[in-house]
Design a protein around this nucleic acid. Structure first.
Lengths: 267, 267
DNA sequence: CGTCATTGTCCCTTACAAGAGACGCCTGTA
DNA sequence: TACAGGCGTCTCTTGTAAGGGACAATGACG
């Protein structure tokens, strides 16, 4: 994973001022940082490296990791001195799925849609103010568009982001979008006003299409999933080659909107 | 955490360091208890009830829940003052699956097996000294055998339990199996020695069948999945009607062992 | 209308966990 | 052989978070 492209190291814009002055940290916060760190690395990691990664004292890290391993939230990886997520987290995650109609049905719908169209399909949500790919199904194209579940991407880079922010006022949007988020991967810079305009357009249109934002070869089609009238809870989206014909794109959008609407019903 | 399921099985067995004398608890431990509690309730719960459920002061519980909600590990449920697992836990759980070949392939194998045979199929593992159904696929019978993912059952009640303990010595087994665990749902009581004998038999046979242990209508066929020679990492099992013919049972065991062995290879 | 139970917030105290650092143990390499 | 670097454990101190408890605001009774 390219840590370079702003996904991993995020100073968290503003208020979460990084007291690196070594102020004593609450154990729980350290744990949350550890989990988040493992989520970004996506692999087992040594405890020493972990301590360095979350900028915590070694002794503290050992203590916390032991607690977490005992609890089953983390597991020691095969070779013995590395840790990664544990079975407990998987079980809790399954509990979440079970308790969440939208996610459960959304996953099925996404899988179905990608099999049906052959394109990469995703279910996206806001996750504590950030755009998150909650589930994705790869499609059948020879080149696979990279989009791991759980990946977090700046909202302005995506079509879904424009839909997910439909319900929020300007202040809330400014709050969620950092300056860095407005800079696209290719270096271009979006204007916040333009982005907010996009959101309004997407809201009234009931779908959104972006071309060549995250990369130059794809466009992204997205449709909103409502949890209540006007409240966008999630989006379904399709990632297709940027040269897809207008007619085919329109067909796909139509299909996508229909499926997204179907998800909206009982939520 | 030994007292993890205290509320499910034994409302107040008392023996587990239940220092209700008001000893100050570490925040992290409280959090672990909260998560475990939500796992057993399987539903959103009010913060007051939660505090009562984990026997924690209200003020502390509010503080912790707020942290967890901010972090996305928990979410406020729809109506507003209830909490349940959050998206973050789902994402971490998916990370676990991704980083765990055995689980990923095991899930597929189980789904496939149950479609193929029409019987309920499960993947089981030891989870911090407890038997856990990690994944299950319902099968096509009219009466559905209840076996939720994440369910924890006393080891002696199951065929898989006998296989999972194959690698452990007597002391370790005694440590994992409480007195209560030896009492079957119908009230019968197993002798620990008999259980340990069962384990030895299962180990050398390479499979295990139990009839009418958890309930009177089913038998359970299980085969071991090895992560290293001799080390049982998981089991696959089939739950079939107790009156299934011997020949069919034998066929199923054969199939099961083959599939379990296939899982073992690369792990 | 009172009464009782619950919910969410706040403040103050002190028990205790986070952290610094030293220690012994490995393994690699110069 | 000596050194450097990482790992895992342990001890001791002190800053701080857990907890007790009071408070206002709700809502459910009768």
């Amino acid at each position: 994973m390219q840590d370079g492209n702003a996904l991993a190291a995020r100073p968290d814009a503003g208020l979460d001022e990084d007291k690196n002055s070594g102020s004593r940290e609450k154990g729980l916060n350290r744990v949350l940082q550890i989990l988040e760190f493992l989520h970004t690395t996506q692999r087992a990691i040594g405890i020493g490296d972990l301590a360095r990664g979350v900028n915590a004292p070694r002794s503290t890290t050992y203590t916390l990791v032991r607690s977490l391993v005992d609890a089953g939230l983390l597991e020691m990886a095969g070779d013995g001195n590395r840790v990664y997520f544990g079975k407990k987290l998987y079980l809790y995650g399954m509990d979440y799925v079970r308790g969440n109609d939208l996610l459960r049905r959304g996953r099925q719908e996404v899988d179905h849609l990608s099999r049906e169209t052959g394109e990469t399909s995703e279910l996206c949500m806001l996750q504590s103010g950030r755009y998150t790919i909650v589930h994705s199904s790869p499609g059948t194209r020879p080149f696979r568009i990279s989009s791991a579940t759980g990946l977090q991407i700046p909202l302005p880079w995506t079509a879904s982001g424009r839909l997910l922010l439909a319900g929020f006022d300007r202040a809330a949007i400014e709050d969620m979008v950092s300056e860095d988020d407005l800079v696209l991967p290719d270096g271009r810079r979006l204007q916040l006003d333009d982005f907010i305009d996009d959101i309004a357009v997407a809201k009234s249109a009931g779908y959104c299409v972006t071309s060549g934002l995250v990369d130059a070869y794809t466009k992204c089609l997205a449709a909103p999933v409502f949890s209540a009238p006007g409240r966008v809870e999630a989006t379904m989206c399709l990632v297709v080659p940027i040269d897809t014909s207008t007619e085919k794109t329109d067909d796909l959008i139509e299909l996508l909107r229909e499926r997204a609407a179907r998800l909206s019903i009982a939520a």
